[in-house]
Amino acid sequence: MEIKNTNLEQLEDGLATFLADHLASITANIQMERLAQQSRLASAAEAEGSRADAVGAKAARITFTRTPATS
């Protein structure tokens, strides 16, 4: 990170603290967004797994049998 157009006095007088707080807030928001995204992905994967299981069960019930010949 590069800080331009400031001086040591400004940093000492509170700018450094402001920047640290701001960066910590950004980091916390990113972490919350990532956790929310992971949760959504896990839910979607679970739903897809359930759907795939249901399709597999339905497919397993299908049989291909010939109609008996009649004389």
Rank of each mutant, 00 (worst) to 15 (best):
F18Y: 15
A60F: 00
I62R: 11
T65E: 15
R61G: 08
E12Y: 03
Q31G: 05
R34W: 03
R34D: 00
D21E: 14
L8T: 08
R40H: 10
I30K: 14
S25G: 10
L11Q: 01
G49A: 10
E46A: 14
V55N: 12
T17S: 11
A45P: 01
A42Q: 13
T17V: 10
A54P: 06
P68D: 09
A28C: 00
Q37I: 04
I30V: 14
L41H: 09
N29L: 08
E9L: 09
S25Q: 11
R61S: 15
L41I: 12
R51D: 13
I3W: 12
R40P: 04
L41Y: 05
R40S: 08
L8C: 07
E46Y: 12
A57M: 10
E2L: 13
H22I: 00
Q31M: 07
E48G: 01
A69Q: 11
R66L: 12
T6D: 02
S43Q: 15
K4V: 08
A57C: 07
A69I: 14
R61Q: 14
A60R: 13
L19P: 01
A42F: 03
G56M: 09
A45K: 05
S71T: 04
S43N: 15
Q31H: 13
A28F: 12
P68K: 13
T70Q: 13
K4G: 00
A24K: 02
N7E: 04
T17H: 09
L23T: 00
D13S: 15
L23G: 03
V55W: 08
L35N: 12
R66A: 07
S43K: 14
R40I: 07
Q38F: 12
I30P: 00
A20Y: 06
D13A: 15
L15N: 01
K58F: 14
Q37E: 12
S39F: 06
L8P: 01
Q38W: 10
A47K: 09
G14W: 04
Q10M: 11
L19W: 01
E2K: 15
A42W: 02
A57I: 00
A60D: 13
R34F: 03
T67C: 03
V55R: 13
L8Q: 03
E9C: 04
Q31C: 06
L11M: 13
T65H: 09
R34E: 05
A16W: 03
E46V: 04
E12S: 06
A69V: 14
E48V: 07
A44V: 00
P68V: 09
I26R: 12
K4P: 04
S25E: 08
S39I: 05
T63C: 02
T17Q: 12
R40V: 10
